[in-house]
Lab assay of single mutants.
Amino acid sequence: KELVLVLYDYQEKSPREVTVKKGDILTLLNSTNKDWWKVEVDDRQGFIPAAYLKKL
Rank of each mutant, 00 (worst) to 15 (best):
K1R: 13
E2I: 13
E2T: 13
E2Q: 12
L3A: 06
L3Q: 11
L3K: 12
V4R: 01
V6R: 00
L7Q: 04
L7T: 04
Y8A: 14
Y8L: 10
Y8E: 12
Y8G: 07
Y8P: 00
Y8V: 09
D9K: 03
D9L: 02
Y10H: 04
Y10Q: 01
Y10K: 01
Q11V: 12
Q11L: 14
E12C: 13
E12Q: 14
K13Y: 05
K13D: 06
S14V: 05
S14A: 09
S14G: 13
S14K: 08
P15A: 12
P15V: 09
R16A: 13
R16H: 13
R16N: 14
R16D: 12
V18H: 03
T19R: 05
T19Y: 04
T19I: 03
T19L: 02
V20S: 03
V20I: 05
V20P: 00
K21I: 07
K21N: 09
K22I: 05
K22T: 07
K22L: 05
K22P: 02
G23E: 02
D24S: 13
D24W: 15
I25M: 06
I25A: 02
I25N: 02
L26N: 01
L26R: 03
L26E: 00
L26Q: 02
L26D: 00
L28D: 00
L29Q: 03
N30F: 07
S31N: 08
T32D: 14
N33D: 15
K34T: 12
K34E: 12
W36A: 03
W37L: 02
K38S: 09
V39W: 01
V39T: 01
E40G: 08
D42Q: 12
D42A: 14
D43A: 12
R44E: 05
Q45K: 12
Q45A: 12
G46K: 04
G46W: 07
G46M: 10
G46P: 03
G46H: 07
F47K: 02
I48Y: 01
I48V: 15
P49R: 05
A50F: 03
A50Y: 03
A50D: 01
Y52Q: 04
Y52D: 02
L53S: 04
L53W: 01
K54D: 05
K54C: 15
K54G: 05
K55T: 07
K55H: 08
L56K: 03
L56N: 03
